[in-house]
Design a protein around this nucleic acid. Structure first.
Length: 865
RNA sequence: GCGAAAGUGGCGGAACUGGUAGACGCGCUGGAUUUAGGUUCCAGUGGGGCGACCCGUGAGGGUUCGAGUCCCUCCUUUCGCACCA
């Protein structure tokens, strides 16, 4: 028996046991109810960070809890192994992305094992391996056949110096991150997946996802963005031919107030006008500069220039000028919007700036309208005025009447519009899944035949920042056309890494399947019962996965539509930020581990200084752990010092899973202290003497009270793990139970029997969080079977019974006294007891008692006066 | 800019269905043990007041016998915005 808790030995032993027994190998068994617990797979960035530890601990706690509930648990793991950081590392170190990635995977796998997660490694998925990504390619070809995948142009960030396409994160303040060159928008051909075909279904099905957080569902619904409106065509003549400029609006009722139309800089009309107007050409060029990020575009100052063209108002026949606006997106709708300054705030500002007419065409309760200053109510729905025969109509009626009249003239129609855009998957990058297409001068674009899949990505290239090295590799590019056999060029764009992560959770259920993308085992495991990952994936990854699953469903590959039944979005892990800003200018960040925080007598922080030189450093508050702020805590160093159980315990105890978690060395120390205390408590109990068999009927009051606490705690912890998923309150409850054990007089064999049961419960309840300690202590408590294989105990209803209950008594809303009454006391008796209480009488005084509210088991509220 | 959420002691948080605000832990204070530091153990700890009591959940208003919880306005912070993953 070890009196000292030694995490390293305890953890090695437990992990060896699980490994040897094959504890976490998941086997399909139709006779048992399955539980598929899925955590978002990591990008192999080098080493695990605290966010991973938090994410996977949550998954492991749920997995182990469900296992004890008798479920056949699958908890797999894999690697989101394609992506930009590998190319950046390659540029910095000259190492091929493949080697860097595989090395990182080896390191991180070792770290995951050290944390004791119950993972089934036989199902490991690595997305940069051909046996995985061949199925990306295969499904892409099926989508191409069905027309779901198609080609059109898309806008990218172009670095004119490096002659390369940049990711949004590589554009800083409109300039290339390496070259500092001003970035231009460029239109290039790309492949798209028609996610908008599924918009209606993806939106409608959100309602059934009641295991998802409401906020994620709301964000997705807003992202998909269904809006009903009217497409309106503004006719014009150009070079003797008739054309129309199409816009979409949800406010067709304001059509009579349209005093201009704005088009995107890339719009053909803008290009045409710019050809004869150097000033406009310069403006169009300026609009094309900068990044393609929507957040950047949205915060731009709205600017515009007239094209000199005008179009005809479809109802009034008036001439409406066409402007180029820097805020109009070519990729959204037809690249044109109508401007109604009278009733749209942005158009109002635009019109004021450029002296365009502002006309009121909607009346709201007869309120006085002034074009001098914008009022929020201008955008409200109301009744049409100044709109000819539509005057007096309300919003609904006006929109329908105007749409009908436009339709009669062939100049418009009611339309449902989606904010969601089709998914552009082409990336002009090396470290990704090759798009399986061949370009032939004679046959055009030809799909790679299935028999030639996968198109294997060579793993020995090293990108240098100037374009895709694949495009320069003759052995890859040069090929024969599958249709005519003549020399042809292979496509060198690769797929968005969101493709890889859109179905990995299906592949976990079909390990080793090389004849098909997935096999019949997905029917057993899917959908995932629980998905756990960062809130930052609330929209894109989850939406793409829902889409991809539906595409596979429509191809008959799976029978489900929704891949994730329950979703838990975990918060960020944060830490203090400390820095110095030397006169030279560049800020230096110091890791919190190297900083000493100074406090006053009350413990309030007064300052901070660097341990190394004792000189002060500035505090930058608290922020998400990141390399750039140098405020990360390395899990490995922590585990080496305190053990995996302490890391897991602190992570689960410090905050509920969906809130951000602030790292605290002292808090982690507290977690370690608790485990030591648990260890010592169990050993002290075992050494304390003989215990009697537990006879619930023969217990004294104190023993009965402790037993009640133990069973109450069990009920609470079961609910916290299973329903509420608040691991912090579950752990707090077990701490309270142990405090009660500490305060319990265990001098008799009977009392020790009660303590024994309480400690067994504590070990069982903590085992999902700190499985290694629990493994060791469970053996010490005299059990043959490993705690991981034990069933979750049931709490005894008889142990929960209480004779009396304490109620709070309020007088006029303030707590004034407490009374103790029998649990089954009638309301009338409780009321009488409350009014008879001397303190209550003192506060009621001479006032009349007007009302007495009795809330059973909680309180009595006396209203006097 | 748009969309979504969160603000409670010195700190992380608890209060689950509108019903005792501050569970549990950290920190701090005092004490015991220790040669000392650390560890460990015991007690105290929202603010004010000698006290009876009063005040307190980002700010301001409202509903209610009763509001951290519901409603309205505002402020701050965090996440997402389609090529970071």
């Amino acid at each position: 028996m070890h009196d000292q808790y030694e995490p390293a030995a305890v953890e090695a032993e437990a992990q060896q046991y699980w490994e040897g027994a094959g504890t976490f190998r998941a086997v399909e068994d139709p006779a048992r109810p399955k539980y598929y617990c899925l955590s978002m797979f990591p990008y192999p960035s080098g080493r695990l960070h605290m966010g991973h530890v938090r994410n996977y601990t949550i998954g492991d706690v749920i997995s182990r809890f469900m296992r004890m509930q008798g479920r056949n648990v699958l908890q797999p793991m894999g690697w989101d192994a394609f992506g930009l950081p590998a190319e950046n590392a390659a540029m910095a170190n000259g190492v091929p992305p493949a080697r860097w990635t595989y090395d990182n995977i080896a390191t991180m796998k070792r770290q995951l094992k050290a944390l004791g997660f119950g993972l089934d490694w036989s199902r490991e998925v690595t997305t940069c391996r051909p046996d995985y990504y061949r199925w990306n390619q295969w499904l892409f070809l099926r989508m191409l056949e069905k027309g779901i995948a198609y080609q059109k142009t898309g806008t990218v960030n172009w670095d004119p110096v490096d002659q390369t396409v940049l990711a949004n994160e590589q554009v800083i303040d409109g300039r290339g991150w390496r070259t500092g060159a001003l970035i231009e928008k460029r239109e290039i051909p790309m492949y798209y997946l028609g996610i908008t075909r599924y918009a209606e279904e993806l939106l409608g099905a959100l309602e059934g996802l009641d295991g998802w957080p409401e906020r994620v569902r709301t964000m997705q619904a807003n992202w998909i963005g269904r809006s009903e409106g009217v497409t309106i065509a503004f006719p014009y003549e150009l070079d003797g031919a008739r054309h129309t400029l199409k816009v979409f609006t949800t406010r067709a009722d304001t059509l009579f107030g349209a005093t201009f139309v704005a088009v995107a800089a890339e719009h053909p009309l803008a290009t045409r006008a710019a050809a004869g107007d150097p000033a406009l050409a310069a403006f169009v060029d300026e609009c094309k500069r900068g990044s393609v990020m929507e957040a950047d575009l949205a915060t731009l100052e709205k600017r515009g220039m007239p094209t000199g063209f005008s179009v005809t108002h479809p109802l009034t026949g008036a001439r409406v000028p066409v402007w180029v606006g820097n805020y109009v997106l070519m990729g959204y709708g037809e690249g044109a919007v109508m401007g109604v300054p009278g009733h749209d705030e942005r158009d109002f500002a635009f019109a004021r700036k450029y002296g365009l007419p502002i006309v009121q065409v909607i009346d709201v309760d007869g309120r006085p309208y002034s074009a001098a200053a914008w009022q929020p109510w201008y955008a409200d729905h109301g009744r049409c005025i100044g709109s000819g025969r539509y005057d007096g109509l309300d919003y609904e009626a006006a929109v329908h009447a105007i749409a009908a009249d436009l339709a009669a003239r062939g100049l418009g129609a009611l339309q449902v519009q989606w904010r969601l855009r089709d998914w552009g998957i082409s990336r002009q990058r090396y470290w990704g899944c090759p798009i399986p297409l061949i370009h032939c001068a004679a046959c055009g674009t030809v799909p790679v035949p299935d028999r030639d899949l996968p198109v294997v990505l060579p793993e020995d290239l090293v990108p240098d920042g100037s374009g895709n090295p694949l495009a320069r590799l003759k052995a890859f590019v040069e090929c024969a056309c599958p249709a005519c056999g003549k020399p042809a060029r292979r496509e060198t764009d690769t797929m968005d890494t969101f493709v890889d992560s859109s179905w990995y959770f299906l592949r976990y259920a079909s390990p080793g399947s090389d004849a098909a993308m997935v096999d019949e085992r997905v029917r057993y495991w899917l959908p995932a019962d629980q998905y756990i990952g960062g809130i930052e994936h609330a929209i894109l990854h989850l939406l793409y996965s829902r889409f991809w699953t539906r595409v596979m469903r429509d191809l008959g590959l799976v029978s489900i539509s929704e891949p994730f039944q329950n979703l838990l979005t975990q918060g960020m892990v944060r830490n203090g930020i400390y820095f110095r800003k030397p006169a030279s200018g560049r800020v230096v960040y110091y890791n919190p581990a190297d900083v000493e925080v100074l406090t006053d007598a009350r413990g309030q922080p007064t300052g901070a200084r660097l341990k190394a030189d004792g000189q002060p450093v500035e505090s930058g508050g608290i922020g998400t752990m990141s390399k750039s702020k140098n405020n990360g805590v390395d899990p490995q160093a922590f585990i080496d010092r305190y053990g995996a159980d302490t890391a897991r315990l602190f992570m689960m105890f410090a905050a509920p899973p969906d809130l951000s978690l602030d790292w605290s060395d002292e808090g982690a120390e507290g977690a370690s202290r608790f485990l030591k205390r648990l260890w010592k408590t169990v050993h002290a109990h075992l050494a304390s003497g003989a215990r009697a068999p537990l006879d619930a009927a023969a217990l004294g009051a104190a023993d009965r009270a402790l037993r009640r606490i133990a069973h109450q705690t069990l009920a609470k912890v079961s609910d916290d793990y299973g329903r509420r998923r608040t691991f912090n309150t579950a752990i707090a409850a077990v701490m309270e139970l142990l405090n009660a054990v500490r305060d319990h007089d265990a001098a008799t064999p009977v009392a020790r029997a009660v303590v024994h049961e309480a400690l067994e419960f504590a070990v069982l309840m903590l085992s999902p969080v700190v499985p290694h300690v629990a493994h060791a202590l469970w053996r010490e408590l005299g059990h043959e079977r490993a705690v991981v294989d034990e069933a979750w105990p049931a709490s005894d209803p008889a142990a929960l019974v209480q004779d009396t209950v304490e109620l709070v008594v309020q007088v006029n809303g303030k707590v004034r006294s407490r009374i103790t009454v029998p649990v089954d006391a009638a309301e009338e008796a409780v009321r009488a007891a409350a009014l008879a209480d001397p303190t209550v009488q003192r506060f009621v005084g001479s006032q009349a008692v007007r009302k007495v509210i009795v809330v059973k088991g909680k309180l009595v509220s006396v209203v006097a006066g």
